[in-house]
Computed example of a mutant assay.
Amino acid sequence: MRIGIIGAGNIGGNLTRSLTALGHDVFVANSRGPHTLGVLAEETGATPVPAEEAARGAEIVVVTVPMKAVPALAPGILDGAAEGVAVIDTGNYYPKQRDGRIAAIEDEGLTESRWTERRIGHPVIKAFNGTFAQDILERALPAGAPDRMALPVAGDDEAAKRKVMALIDEIGFDTVDAGGLDDSWRQQPGTPVYGLRAGVAEVTKALAAAAPGRTPEFRAEQGAE
């Protein structure tokens, strides 16, 4: 499968490693340009490309950049993707730690991935946002393994969600359908499932236990802009 990865940080880098090892044709991009991705390309066999070319022909595109960088993505970043492309958003909103205040999230209660979806102009599937990067490589297990971790997956496009869940299973993790994108607050930072290393039953229970509203650690300072 042809897969585009926009963002080559911890999550993007390890997804590149995992997916190329599985035989997928991976095209990876970052904000600094393909010339900075030589080491990752040599290690994995992935093809480094400019960000505006990462989605070309891709059946799955992973957007794994800081939320503050999402508005800077080129208009039409998904132009040329395969018909029915599934777009994975791995992002988290860290207002104090990194991203600054995003009014639509703070004031309107928009979920993080709904905000990203509107910015890039394409439906997204929220996944990997609460996953430790090293776990992608170190905790992947075959289907049926008793200690296999499960990841929550949220999104409105059921066909795209199934495609993403199948890919996650191939990578080495079970999945739990976390509902639509407006339900994806249940897996945002500060919720019980965020960072949880557990199986399907525990992840399902943690999603159900989530309470609406952002925890203080993940809200912007009062009056901050």
Score class of each variant (00 low, 15 high):
residue 57 G to N: 05
residue 75 P to T: 00
residue 71 P to I: 03
residue 81 A to T: 04
residue 72 A to E: 10
residue 59 E to N: 15
residue 80 G to N: 05
residue 48 P to R: 04
residue 72 A to K: 12
residue 66 P to A: 11
residue 83 E to S: 08
residue 76 G to M: 04
residue 75 P to L: 03
residue 47 T to E: 12
residue 62 V to I: 15
residue 58 A to G: 05
residue 84 G to N: 02
residue 47 T to W: 00
residue 63 V to Q: 01
residue 79 D to V: 05
residue 49 V to M: 06
residue 44 T to E: 14
residue 56 R to H: 12
residue 62 V to C: 12
residue 56 R to A: 12
residue 86 A to R: 10
residue 64 T to L: 01
residue 49 V to N: 04
residue 42 E to R: 14
residue 48 P to S: 06
residue 44 T to M: 11
residue 87 V to A: 02
residue 67 M to W: 11
residue 62 V to S: 09
residue 74 A to Y: 02
residue 56 R to I: 06
residue 77 I to M: 05
residue 43 E to K: 10
residue 65 V to A: 05
residue 52 E to N: 09
residue 54 A to K: 01
residue 86 A to T: 08
residue 84 G to K: 05
residue 44 T to A: 12
residue 82 A to P: 06
residue 42 E to K: 11
residue 65 V to G: 08
residue 92 N to W: 07
residue 54 A to Q: 00
residue 77 I to Q: 01
residue 72 A to P: 03
residue 48 P to T: 06
residue 92 N to M: 07
residue 63 V to E: 03
residue 91 G to M: 15
residue 51 A to N: 04
residue 62 V to L: 14
residue 87 V to H: 02
residue 57 G to Q: 08
residue 48 P to F: 12
residue 67 M to G: 10
residue 49 V to F: 07
residue 85 V to H: 04
residue 50 P to M: 14
